[in-house]
C-alpha cells in the first residue's frame, strides 16, 4: 500500500528531483544568508565615507572587496544592505498581494452574480488610479517610510492576481467535482479553500515567480524618483541606478549589484517553474494501473 502523502509533501519530493530548481533554491538561500550576515564581517558601515578611497576599484588588501562608490562608501556593505531591502520588498509585497488577490478573486469568481460584479468594479476603480499619483498621495498623508513601499506595491499588484484568479475560478467552478462537493454537504468556504484554491496554484505560482522580479524593479523605479528608500539606506535597484551613471569610470559600481539582482531574478524564475511542476499532480509518474 502506498503511503498517503499530503500535497506539500509530494511537492517537496518532486521539487528536490528538479535540478535547476534545487540549484536555484540553494543559491537563493546562500544569497539570503550573505545579505543578512555579510556586513558583520566587513570593517565598514553603510554610510561611512573613506576619504582616501573615493571611487576605488575592488581590492582585497583594504577590505573594500567590491570597491567603493563615488562618495567613498563601501560597496560590499551597501550591496548587502540593498539586498535586504530588495528581497524584503520582493517577497513581502508579493506575498501580501498574492494572499489578498487569490482570496478576493476566488471569492468573487465563486460567488458570481451581483457580488462578483461589485467586487470586480471595485478592482476597476483601483485600476483606474495612476500608480504614481497613488504613491505620492500615500507619501503626503503618511510621510516617507519603507513600509509605505510595501503598501503601495501590494495595493497595486493584488489587482492583477485577483483578475487572473477570478477568471480561473469561473472555469473551475463549472467542474463537476465542485457540484459533487456541494452535494457532499461541504461548506462554501471549504469548497473555495479545498477545491478552488489548490487548483489555482499552477497559475498563481508562475505569476508569483514573475511578480517578485517585477516588484524589485518597481521599487528601484520609485527609488530613482526619490519616492523609494532614502539615503543612506539603499536597494539593489537604487545601486544599479547609481552604478549605471558611473559605468565608464567605475564599472564595479554597476557590476556587483547587477550580478546580485540578475541572479535573484533567474533563481526566482527557475524556482517558480519547478514549483509549478511539483504542485501539479498530473506531472508525477503514474502508478501501475
Amino acid at each position: 500500500m502506498r503511503k498517503t502523502n499530503s500535497l506539500l509533501n509530494d511537492a517537496w519530493v518532486a521539487l528536490s528531483k528538479n535540478k535547476a530548481a534545487l540549484i536555484s533554491a540553494t543559491t537563493m538561500a546562500a544569497m539570503v544568508f550573505m545579505v543578512l550576515f555579510g556586513p558583520i564581517f566587513s570593517p565598514y558601515t553603510i554610510d561611512e565615507t573613506d576619504w582616501y578611497k573615493i571611487s576605488a576599484a575592488p581590492s582585497l588588501l583594504d577590505g573594500h572587496i567590491f570597491g567603493t562608490d563615488d562618495l567613498g562608501r563601501d560597496l560590499f556593505v551597501r550591496t548587502m544592505f540593498g539586498g535586504r531591502i530588495s528581497l524584503m520588498v520582493g517577497l513581502v509585497a508579493t506575498l501580501v498581494s498574492v494572499m489578498i488577490g487569490v482570496t478576493y478573486g476566488a471569492v468573487a469568481g465563486f460567488m458570481g452574480g451581483r457580488i462578483d460584479a461589485l467586487m470586480m468594479r471595485f478592482v476597476d476603480v483601483l485600476y483606474a488610479m495612476p500608480f504614481l499619483f497613488f504613491v505620492i498621495l500615500l507619501m503626503v498623508f503618511f510621510g516617507r517610510s519603507i513600509f509605505l513601499i510595501f503598501v503601495a506595491i501590494g495595493a497595486v499588484n493584488w489587482l492583477d492576481i485577483a483578475r487572473i484568479v477570478r477568471g480561473q475560478t469561473l472555469n473551475i467552478k463549472g467542474k463537476e467535482y465542485v457540484d459533487a462537493a456541494k452535494t457532499g454537504g461541504v461548506s462554501t468556504i471549504k469548497i473555495i479553500m479545498k477545491h478552488i484554491v489548490p487548483n489555482l496554484l499552477g497559475v498563481v505560482v508562475v505569476y508569483v515567480a514573475l511578480t517578485v522580479p517585477q516588484v524589485i524593479l518597481v521599487e528601484s523605479f520609485l527609488s530613482f524618483l526619490g519616492l523609494g528608500v532614502q539615503e543612506p539606506m539603499t536597494s539593489w535597484g537604487a545601486l544599479v541606478n547609481q552604478g549605471a551613471r558611473q559605468m565608464e569610470s567605475s564599472p564595479w559600481m554597476l557590476l556587483f549589484p547587477a550580478i546580485f539582482l540578475a541572479t535573484t531574478l533567474f533563481c526566482f524564475n527557475f524556482i517558480g517553474d519547478g514549483l509549478r511542476d511539483a504542485l501539479d499532480p498530473k506531472d508525477r509518474t503514474r502508478g501501475n494501473d
Partner: peptide, 14 residues
C-alpha cells in the same frame, strides 16, 4: 447523492 458523467472532471485532480 449524485454520480456525474465525466469521471475525470468529477474528481478533484489535487
Amino acid at each position: 447523492q449524485v454520480v456525474f458523467q465525466d469521471p475525470f472532471s468529477s474528481l478533484n485532480p489535487r
